[in-house]
C-alpha cells in the first residue's frame, strides 16, 4: 500500500522519465524528433508512447490483473512489434522502470517495486508475442484470404477450403 501511495505521489516524475527512457530506445537521431511534444497525428509514435506510459502507470496504481495490464500495454507494444527491434529490445523499455524506481523510491520499497515491474514485463512479453503472431498470420494469409476467398466464393478453386490454405488442418 505504501508503495502505491509513494508511486502516486511521484507519478509525474515516473511517467516523464519512463517516456524519455522509452523514446531513447530509438536511434538518437530519431529519438530527438519522436520525443517532441507535438500533435498526435504528426507524431504518432511519440504521442502513443506517452499516452501508454501514462495509462499503464495509472493502471498499476489501481487493482489490476495480468489481463488488464496486457491490454493497457497493447498500443505501445503493437508499435514496437513492427519496428526494427529484437524481442528483447522491444520490451526493454519496461525494465527502464527499475532504474527509475531506484532513483526515485526509497530503498525499502525497491524489492516490491521490482516485482511490480516484473509483472509489467511479463505482460509485455505476452503482448509482444501476440502482436508478432498476428503479423505472421497476416503475412501467411493476407493474399490467400483476399484473393483465394474471392475465387472460392466463385467456385473457381472449390477443391481448396480456407482451412487448407491457412494450414490449420494440417497442424
Amino acid at each position: 500500500m505504501k508503495l502505491k501511495q509513494e508511486l502516486k505521489k511521484k507519478k509525474h516524475d515516473f511517467i516523464k522519465k519512463w517516456f524519455r527512457a522509452t523514446i531513447d530506445t530509438y536511434s538518437p537521431d530519431a529519438a530527438r524528433i519522436l520525443g517532441k511534444d507535438s500533435n498526435r497525428f504528426d507524431n504518432p509514435i511519440g504521442a502513443i508512447t506517452n499516452e501508454t506510459c501514462e495509462d499503464v502507470f495509472n493502471h498499476i496504481l489501481e487493482d489490476f490483473t495480468q489481463v488488464t495490464l496486457e491490454k493497457k500495454l497493447d498500443p505501445i507494444i503493437r508499435i514496437r512489434a513492427v519496428q526494427a527491434f529484437s524481442a528483447s529490445e522491444a520490451v526493454s523499455f519496461v525494465y527502464a522502470l527499475k532504474r527509475i524506481g531506484n532513483d526515485l523510491l526509497d530503498e525499502s520499497l525497491g524489492r516490491e517495486f521490482d516485482r511490480l515491474v516484473d509483472n509489467i514485463a511479463l505482460a509485455s512479453f505476452n503482448r509482444f508475442m501476440k502482436c508478432r503472431e498476428e503479423i505472421f498470420l497476416l503475412k501467411a494469409t493476407e493474399s490467400k484470404r483476399r484473393i483465394h476467398r474471392a475465387f472460392e466464393r466463385a467456385g473457381l478453386v472449390a477443391e481448396l477450403s480456407e482451412e487448407d490454405l491457412l494450414g490449420s488442418k494440417k497442424s
Binding site: 517532441k36 511534444d37 500533435n39 498526435r40
Partner: peptide, 15 residues
Amino acid sequence: KAAFNKNVSNRLSYS
C-alpha cells in the same frame, strides 16, 4: 497549421 493544434494533454503544442 498543425503546430497550433492542441495535443492530447491539451497543451498548446510547441513547434
